[in-house]
């Protein structure tokens, strides 16, 4: 698989390590989360057959975290974003600022 890095261009997926579902960016609020919230966050997955947003780490490159949208049935990659931008978008959504950014 070739991952089209937003900053570096097309890179071999072997340069990356894989973490999992990008929902891991939505960490529960430690002040209000219940044990069940933490369980669901840490252990349960949608695990879809089809489009999947997932976290890849460019370990053999610029050490950036990416959110890759990939089809788990065909391995086709349709979108690659910097996880930083996605996380900032999530944070601004939570703050109600509505300035969601989307990276390359």
């Amino acid at each position: 698989m070739i991952i089209n890095h937003p900053l570096l261009g097309p890179r071999d997926s072997a340069e990356f390590t894989y973490l999992g579902d990008a929902s891991l960016l939505n960490r529960p609020d430690p002040d209000t989360a219940t044990p069940k919230d933490w369980h669901d966050y840490a252990y349960l997955r949608d695990n879809p057959a089809g489009l999947h947003r997932e976290l890849w780490f460019h370990e053999g490159g610029d050490r950036s975290w990416l959110v890759v949208t990939r089809n788990t049935v065909t391995h086709e990659i349709t979108k690659v974003e910097l996880a930083r931008d996605v996380a900032r978008g999530l944070a601004s959504d939570v703050a109600g600022m509505g300035t969601k950014r989307s990276g390359g």
């Binding site: 999992g20 579902d21 669901d40 252990y43 349960l44 997955r45 949608d46 695990n47 879809p48 057959a49 788990t72």
Partner: peptide, 18 residues
Amino acid sequence: GSSGRLMSKAGMRLPIES
């Protein structure tokens, strides 16, 4: 192998990745 696909039809999320 297909547990995620099947059990989602029952509205379940599993502690499993395929």
